[in-house]
Design a protein around this nucleic acid. Sequence first.
DNA 1: CTGAAAGCGCTAACAG
DNA 2: CTGTTAGCGCTTTCAG
Lengths: 346, 346
Amino acid sequence: MHFKSITIKDIAKALGLSISTVSKALRNSYEISEETKKMVGDYAHSHNYRPNPLAQGLRKGTSKTIGVVVAVFDDNFFSKVIDGIESSSNEHGYSVIFTQSRESYDKEKQNVQTLADRSLDGLLISLSSGTKDLSYLKELSNIGLPIVLFDRISEEINTHKVVCNNYKGGYEATEHLIKNGCKNIAHITSNITLSYSKEREDGYLNALKYYSFPIEESNIIYCNQEDDIYDQANNAIDKLLNKKNPPDAIFCGSDVLSTTVFRILKKKNIRIPEEIAIVGFSNSASAEAYDPSFTTVEQPTFEMGQKATELLIQLMEAKRKPLKYDTIVLDPVLHVRKSSQKLEIV
Amino acid sequence: MHFKSITIKDIAKALGLSISTVSKALRNSYEISEETKKMVGDYAHSHNYRPNPLAQGLRKGTSKTIGVVVAVFDDNFFSKVIDGIESSSNEHGYSVIFTQSRESYDKEKQNVQTLADRSLDGLLISLSSGTKDLSYLKELSNIGLPIVLFDRISEEINTHKVVCNNYKGGYEATEHLIKNGCKNIAHITSNITLSYSKEREDGYLNALKYYSFPIEESNIIYCNQEDDIYDQANNAIDKLLNKKNPPDAIFCGSDVLSTTVFRILKKKNIRIPEEIAIVGFSNSASAEAYDPSFTTVEQPTFEMGQKATELLIQLMEAKRKPLKYDTIVLDPVLHVRKSSQKLEIV
DNA sequence: CTGAAAGCGCTAACAG
DNA sequence: CTGTTAGCGCTTTCAG
């Protein structure tokens, strides 16, 4: 059982025309008379004709489809990037197929394969935290599949990229904590394999350096996003609290980690910001509903999705490979709320 | 510029075989010698051959693709339903295309059209709150496209459906508030056009009735999900607070509304649950991080996605239309937390 | 066991 | 202005 709609052939037969005439009439070719066009158009419309995209794709060698791989849909960050992607693709007449890697390298690879199998015109991907070997992507790129990386990128693959200024976000978050009287700032972040982790950490380190704060290695803890995030965060916090000189502030380097760490601190009845101040990298809409309201570094998500899509479309519609590839860097915004305000506000 | 991989024809030429022999060898036909199969298989593998799905689809009249329309990706409820859909589809070898209607009837219609244009094998849809006229869906259903509705369903269209027991959720939420000493329970919910609104409201009404509480029409307020949800919720709360006898509890009938109402109450410095107790219909993971922790009715989202997908696959793979269509009803779970506990816990 | 040929629905030379 | 034809990559009779 399969659903079928009327074909160009049916129209031709019904109207006593040739298939190609109908095809041309439908595509509004200059070589078809207005009369015929109208006749064909009317018939097609009233019979609810829709061109078979498979046939069109097969013929034209293009599917007008973009494939997208993100880590997870259920995420404040990615969901908004997706909105940006959708908005921009629809505008340009592209359909989008979304898949999630769930931070697994295998699933990511499989997803890309599935997408490539559907013969798409281009790929938008944010690497999973489990990803190390990019050869499968490079191969696809080499045989000509246009690819744009966003958020979690890699040096290994040479193409357009869109990222947030993670360094700046990390620097500003840390500087903000310093200016609010924090003396011993810890950093909980995700796998160092993720491109942004290193950058955010660098921002954190340089802010400490600039304000002549000592740098303690034991204050930086990496969490493996592939494993249970709650356990990971919980261990990280325990480790920090059990230090001889436990931190009085934490800067969290990823969205999930931020909300998770926050939740755990509350569960442990640690007073925020009095005992521990906290700043997170997060796009959570409910950050301000938290108690206390959660100071966050917010990324320009929607814009990131749009930009990535635009670059991809540019790539797909170009006649030849571009001379050079761009990496677009978007600025994050620090939203100061209560969770980081250690000093009394008078 | 388009990306191409090697075709069956290339293999045939390279190996000095005919196209059909290669095709059969690849599909492991019994009429091909083991020797040839091995040769073809090896060549295909080493040259990274992947069948062109467009051609396969065109030929076989099937695309092994499921289209999905939800209201929004960025939603605690839908994101998990999507996980369920993905899991189940992958298991059965189907690709999935996701789109969001953003609660707009026009966008929903357009999405379905886009999806249908990609000649998919089946459609999974949760109606937008703006949807009233279902004729476009009925048409597709009539020409044979398998469709399964979930969460936001409609009587108008005769097919498999998967929903939550919304009546039960509404009843239990209300009953719980009553048992916790609330005397005047309001209900803020979404458009009455959504199938679940009516059911949750009925649960609310019947619980009041059962416990001999008076029913006040002014205690029930509908919010239009298409418009700005914050404004809508804000107006609703203002209306309730300005009553002669303002409520001492609110039962929220949808996920977005729940978290939004909660946020607004806090912003207005209304003490929860002392002044107003609140129970929401929500799948938010951070419900317990709220202050006070948020009592919620949680829906079996993942399962809903799975079930819907299974029913759809069943429909797609059936030789003929089923004799009758099922409506599967899944039970929600009430998570009692602090936001609803008006009575002192001793 | 292997091959030739038709056809899925559509587009695009090329003729007329 | 309209029609004929070939072909996109693949599967599937039907012949050999």
